[in-house]
Design a protein around this nucleic acid. Structure first.
Lengths: 119, 119
DNA sequence: TCCATTAGTTACTTTTAGGTTCCTATATGA
DNA sequence: TCATATAGGAACCTAAAAGTAACTAATGGA
């Protein structure tokens, strides 16, 4: 789901999901919550994301007005990404996901259907 | 992303995203927040979801301990779905998405890159 | 007798997402 | 002189997700 949403579903949850209801976008969003990041920094912070997928999703998020892209006329190239005001307004979503995830991890040992992994 | 997560990433957000960072799961979760639902009801409540995809995601969520599935030995078949305690603990996530979505919709007319749609 | 009903399953096809490799520009430092 | 660094783009291919159609079981009602 890379789609830059062009239509708004009636349901508010579906609207939100349409914009960021996708693994990579949520992780990119998280990466940008701490402030301006260069492309490479962002990439390093998101395990296993390929350059192509990162670029694609960043472009879609830019189109959706969530992310601001700044290109500097330097060599080697320098491109900085940051959240727009709209993007930053998504912070509570990541925040609540983080809280939930922490709690889940804490109890995960009592759940038989998961296993801890150290990567 | 149907995968029933078998491993826990170190990052709490990634953990959460791994479980429900997917369009359909988020919408199914929303559908179940109001209580027990039969398969058909759930299907009706989620526009454009196909039977197959609904089944697949419900099964994955069941495996992840988010959803409880109850089969009644009746004809025609009757199957009820409900959130487990774990599933219900995800409520704040949908809740915050709903709030965000409502606000986004309210301001959407001032955003040039979206358009309202009535389906 | 035959149709409708429900919650699927299966097989098959199409669509979408993602992976991989190769290519580029040019200032800097070795 | 030559490798390095950065942020991609293009082409190609595979994998995963989703769509579609057909089929099922057993009962109740027309």
């Amino acid at each position: 789901m890379i789609p830059t949403s062009k239509e708004l579903p009636l349901c508010p949850v579906a609207t939100t999901v349409g914009l960021i209801g996708n693994k990579w976008k949520l992780l990119i969003l998280q990466g940008l919550l701490t402030g301006v990041k260069r492309f490479g920094e962002l990439r390093k912070g998101i395990p296993d994301i390929s350059q192509k997928v990162l670029t694609q999703n960043l472009r879609a998020m830019e189109e959706d007005g969530i992310v601001i892209r700044k290109v500097f006329a330097e060599v080697p190239p320098r491109v900085e990404y940051q959240l727009s005001e709209l993007g930053d307004s998504l912070r509570p979503i990541i925040s609540v996901m983080e809280v939930w995830g922490l709690n889940y991890q804490k109890n995960a040992n009592t759940l038989e259907h998961t296993k801890q992994v150290t990567s």
